[in-house]
Amino acid sequence: MKNRKVIFLLTMALMVTGCVLKEDTQQKEEKEEIITESQIDTEQEGSTPEVEEPKIYMGQVLDTNETDGEINVYDINSYKGNIIGTLEDYEEVELIETVPFGWFKVRLEDGSEGYAEAISIRTEEIPPHEYNKDSSEYVLIFTHEDQTLKIFKNGDLVKESLGSSGVWDSFTPKGIFEIEDGRRGEWSYIERFGVGLKYWVGFRWIYLFHSTPFDKDGNIIVEEAEKIGEPASHGCIRLPVDAAKYIYDNIPVGSIVLIY
């Protein structure tokens, strides 16, 4: 009887000790959890959010006038502005804004800002702008990446075609342009390049939309026509005859041209 009493008392003692240990362990875990959450809150409150650096757009100068190997930078986007600096061939310059029609706002090495012609700056990307497919009744958008021209009327796609931009050393300028007045013809033969063009329409100085090349007798040059869909021109945008004719017949002066 005495032994049973001893065993009972020992059992009760072990049970009480186990409960105490269990409570101590649970309290310790809860305490650690509170500390951990507190640390996280403190770290979050004290952390500084990452600020995304603004993207920098760079271009390279190439004097497409082929005169003295440099271009002028003006205080406004016009030849009538004052010249505030010059950039030499192959010099890099920061592009800070894409400006209509055919200009970039640039930042010079001394930090001053001015305007340079887009036809003299080749670049992989242009700074963002607000023009889009709804910017005029007709909008023509050519993309170098896929060598594709899309023509929109009142925001709706009405014609799409592969084309050919200029090769890197005689690049097609990127930026915001417009179909120019008095720059349109059914046929022209360029002695310098030994090629004929059908249905040409100008969007900036010597730069045109036109058909794939023809020879002097009016025969299509097959090997050149087969290059549609890849850079191949002297800077103009070549198109199949039907696409060039569509522009010639339908696209009015002042229509927006976006080239990326």
Rank of each mutant, 00 (worst) to 15 (best):
R192F: 13
E186R: 11
E180K: 15
S211Y: 00
F171R: 01
H210C: 08
G185H: 00
G202A: 08
L197C: 12
H210R: 06
P213G: 06
L162I: 10
G194N: 04
R204N: 15
S165M: 05
R204L: 15
I176N: 03
I206A: 14
L162V: 10
E160C: 10
D215H: 04
Y207L: 04
I190D: 14
E191T: 13
F177K: 04
G163Q: 09
F209R: 02
F193T: 15
T172E: 02
S164D: 00
D217K: 11
E191V: 09
F214W: 04
R184K: 15
W200Y: 14
P173A: 00
D181R: 10
S188V: 13
G202S: 07
I179K: 08
F193H: 11
K174M: 06
V158W: 05
F171A: 01
S161R: 02
R184T: 03
G155N: 08
V201H: 09
K198N: 09
Y199C: 05
V201D: 01
S161F: 01
E186L: 14
R184Y: 09
Y189K: 07
D169V: 07
F193N: 08
S188Q: 11
V201Y: 01
K159D: 03
E160D: 06
D217R: 11
K159W: 11
L162S: 14
E160V: 10
G163W: 08
I179V: 12
W168E: 09
N154D: 15
D217H: 08
Y189E: 00
S165N: 12
E180Q: 15
D217I: 02
S161A: 14
K159T: 05
Y189H: 06
E191G: 13
V195Q: 13
